[in-house]
Design a protein around this nucleic acid. Structure first.
Length: 273
DNA sequence: TTCCAGGACCGGG
DNA sequence: CCCGGTCATGGA
C-alpha cells in the first residue's frame, strides 16, 4: 500500500523505474533493498517504487518537478511505434518498454558524460559519487547534491585526485570554469538550434561528438540526438544495413538509441560493465 | 599480461 | 579524411 504521503506519479507500463535508472542515461539513482530507488536531482531527494502496477513516490511540493523530470507528458508508445525496422530495433524497443529519457540537469549531465569517456559504468558511478560527496551539499545523511560549476571552478587538479578520474580531471575543471565564467551558458544553448548548441559545447576540451550528443540528449532533452559509443558501433555493424543513417529514425532517434544500448548491454554483453 | 570501458585529441600519411 | 598512438584508471 502507498503510504499516506506517497502519490501515484505514473503507471508501471509507461514508467519502468528499474530500466529507466539502469539503462545508462544517469548514474546517481540507487536501488534499495526493498526494490525502491532513491536519488537526487536539482537538489531534491526522491524515493520512488513500484506498487501494484503503479509508480508511487513521496514528491512533497515537487510533484510538478518530478513529473517533468520523468518526461511524463511525452507519449512513448507512439514514439516507439516509429521503430519498426530493422527487426533488431523492434526487438530492442519492445525489450526496453518503460524506459523514459529523463530531463536531467545540464551541468550534471555534461560533467557526468565528460567523466564517462573511455570508462565503464560502475567506475563512472564511483567517480560521480565521490565528486558529489566531496564537493556537493549534503541534503540528508549520505545524500548529496551534484556540485555546482561555481564550486568546482576554483579547484585544482590535485583537489580532484581522490576521484581517480585520470586525464578527465582537467576536462572537468575546464568545463566547470567555462560554465562559471559564462563562456558556456545553458540558457543560451536552450535557445539555439541543435547544430549551433552542439558546436558550442564541443568547443570545450574533452567534449567530442559522443559526449556532446549525450549532453544534448540527456541534458537538453534533444530527443533527435543519437550518441554513438562502442556498444552502438557494434550493434549498428551487426544488426543494421551498411552505412545506416540514424537520422531516418526522426525526432525520437535518441530514444531508439537508448533501447539499443540497453538491450545490447544487458542481453548481449557477456559482463555487465 | 593484455584487453576493455557510453572518447578525445593530435600527428602523420 | 582516416589512421595509430596516447592519455589515466581499475576490473576481468
Amino acid at each position: 500500500m502507498p503510504t499516506k504521503t506517497e502519490t501515484i506519479i505514473a503507471n508501471a507500463d509507461e514508467l519502468d523505474i528499474c530500466k529507466t535508472f539502469e539503462c545508462g542515461q544517469c548514474f546517481r539513482w540507487k536501488a534499495e533493498e526493498n526494490g525502491s530507488y532513491i536519488g537526487v536531482a536539482a537538489g531534491k531527494i526522491l524515493r520512488v517504487r513500484s506498487e501494484g502496477g503503479n509508480i508511487v513516490a513521496d514528491c512533497g511540493d515537487d510533484a510538478g518537478f518530478w513529473h517533468d523530470y520523468f518526461d511524463l507528458d511525452t507519449d512513448y508508445v507512439v514514439a516507439s511505434s516509429l521503430f519498426a525496422e530493422p527487426e533488431y530495433l523492434k526487438t530492442c524497443a519492445s525489450y526496453g518498454a518503460g524506459i523514459r529519457i529523463l530531463r536531467q540537469e545540464p551541468w550534471e549531465t555534461l560533467c557526468s558524460f565528460i567523466i564517462s569517456q573511455c570508462n565503464n559504468i560502475p567506475r563512472i558511478k564511483t567517480i560521480v559519487d565521490t565528486l558529489c560527496a566531496m564537493y556537493g551539499e549534503e541534503l540528508a545523511p549520505g545524500l548529496f547534491s551534484f556540485p555546482t560549476a561555481d564550486r568546482l571552478a576554483p579547484l585544482s587538479e590535485n583537489d580532484l585526485a581522490p576521484l581517480h578520474s585520470g586525464y578527465r580531471a582537467q576536462y572537468i575543471l575546464d568545463a566547470a570554469r567555462a560554465v562559471a565564467e559564462g563562456t558556456l551558458d545553458f540558457e543560451e544553448l536552450l535557445g539555439m538550434d541543435s547544430a549551433e548548441a552542439f558546436a558550442s559545447v564541443k568547443r570545450l576540451s574533452g567534449v567530442g561528438d559522443k559526449v556532446a550528443n549525450c549532453f544534448m540528449l540527456y541534458g537538453l532533452h534533444r530527443m533527435d540526438r543519437f550518441p554513438v559509443d562502442v556498444w552502438m558501433k557494434r550493434a549498428l555493424k551487426a544488426h543494421f544495413p551498411e552505412n545506416y543513417d540514424p537520422t531516418v529514425l526522426g525526432d525520437f532517434a535518441g530514444l531508439a538509441q537508448q533501447y539499443i544500448f540497453y538491450y545490447a548491454r544487458t542481453q548481449e554483453g557477456a559482463i555487465r560493465n
